[in-house]
Nucleic acid binder design. Structure first.
Lengths: 125, 125
DNA sequence: GAACCATGACAATGACATTGTCAAGATAAA
DNA sequence: TTTATCTTGACAATGTCATTGTCATGGTTC
């Protein structure tokens, strides 16, 4: 039964319903809806309007969590950082992460499920 | 040579005492001390320990004011943006400013030496 | 039909930004 | 000297924000 099927690793593919996504990022579903209202994440929707988060969405949310919880940035700050990321290329957050976790033992935000090797956040959107 | 009053326009030169600086940026002196405690500004000191803000300091504070008041960013976010600015060159805040004041004709506060002298850049307000 | 999702409202909690004041002492300028 | 301003440190009021949580009403999925 262990089929050799492996093709669906597309981190863009919407798969997680909100309750699952919330669990993955250790947040309340309410919080994820707020992130969306604030324009920080844009999960796909099923034809019947149900949110589906992709792996990229999860990573993006993990960045938000890192910035807000570990660095104390508020959502307005996160928005600006994402804006910058889109405007100036993409390496911004990485540089940030180095700065923030110097010798702290933290690990970069990573999508819990499916440990896709690189673990680098990407500006999906 | 008429010694025509060549006031050192060196934007680095510490000149403003805290009450003046506070007036220039429309903030309470208390607030400026907080900015300093947070490591966001580092005004020079006289030999007798009195703060003296330079033109650059003022511009930097105006950036903080712009980011916090107009963009809603908190001090942690400002700190990160300044960190990034130091790490990735200096175009960051400019790009940001464009985003914030689309088509307004204002000039962004600049930390560069080539400040147009008098120009106290009031970011939007 | 039970469990989950959607939106919208409302609220409690804790943290933060800003302003403001008071105190006790040093400095500057008249 | 006198007066105004500066220093640090403490305390507090105000308003805002982030996050979590609940409730209600209704649609969706299994």
């Amino acid at each position: 039964m262990s089929a050799a099927r492996r093709p669906d690793r597309d981190p863009t593919r919407p798969v997680y319903v909100i309750s699952v996504a919330a669990t993955l990022v250790s947040a309340h579903p309410r919080t994820l809806r707020i992130y969306e209202d604030e324009g920080l994440v844009s999960p796909a929707r099923t034809p019947t309007n149900i949110r589906l988060y992709s792996e990229e969405d999860i990573r993006r949310i993990l960045w938000i969590r890192h910035l807000t919880r570990d660095r104390g940035v508020n959502l307005a700050g996160v928005r600006i950082l994402f804006e910058l990321e889109e405007r100036l290329g993409q390496r911004i957050l990485e540089a940030l992460y180095d700065e923030g976790t110097r010798g702290r033992g933290d690990e970069p935000p990573e999508a819990g499920a499916s440990g896709s090797g690189d673990g680098r956040p990407s500006p999906g959107r």
